[in-house]
Amino acid sequence: MIQVKNLSKTYGEKTALDTVSFEIKTGEIVGLLGLNGAGKSTTMNILTGYLSPNSGSVHVNGFDMGKEPGKAKRHIGYLPEQPAFYGGMRVNEYLNFICDLKKILPDKKARQEHLDALFSQVGLSAVKRRLIRNLSKGYRQRVSFAQALVGNPKVLILDEPTVGLDPSQVMEIRQLIRERGKTATVLISSHILSEIRELCQRILVLKDGKLIADDSPENLAKLTRRPHQVKIRVKGSAQQVREALKDTAGLVSLQFLGENEEGTVDAAIETEEGTDARENVFHALAQNSLPLLYTYGSEASLEDIFLQLVRKQDDSHL
């Protein structure tokens, strides 16, 4: 479990974090989103004890990072944004060093069994005796990921966990995160929003060091959903669609987007706020025997949600 209370951090004049508070329970996978410079890496660095906050507190599994850093750090597995390791060490040697550093698995046999299982999980078995400096970027990322998982930590903090991996490896790593997330607390920062949507039950959005959203992707989607704005694809001509929709209740605008499929037309429709354009459009088209092939745009993608949240914040400052 991670408990963050009123975390603030400044770099000289610049405020990197401004009284950020949140809590992540065991068994939760939470995504941390924000534009570049929003404070994601600073947050992660503070959570892992790499940086100290100017004010506020971080508790990891009940241990205060400021007062008992050793005990708090023992529960954390951290994958930094830039994989960091000693290039002159072999993969197996490096992970043994991490075990020593974390003071875990003193029994050599048990340790090697644990490491072998880890190598197999992250796809490092074939290169475990190679020097890290000679590995490709993808393999280095896997080594970095493996060091975060050493000792099955109760809290995983992952900064861009799948960067540099091939698509099949990305799927495997995501599955691994999902499995670990059942018993551990996981915080992920990623610019791949589909990854966040796929993995996370909750999303934290940072903007200029402030936490501007903390909710499930579904609830965030509701906040940004605009059911009065839809796009449709109809089998028929633009003229037929215009005729069919001209008397639609609350119609504000109808804009044709062209023909993307033979014999069909795409259109963007906006009705008055508070109405659901989809229902009225469906009835109007049905009455005119114009098949509605699909409706889209009312369900916001995570990209839309993220951008709308960030823009909304900007607008509120104006």
Binding site: T48, G49, Y50, K73, Y78, P80, F85, L101
Partner: peptide, 14 residues
């Protein structure tokens, strides 16, 4: 330089 201080300083070693 190699940022391995991040590995050391985030480990339970003072």
């Amino acid at each position: 330089q190699s940022k391995t201080d991040q590995v050391l300083l985030t480990s339970p070693v003072s």
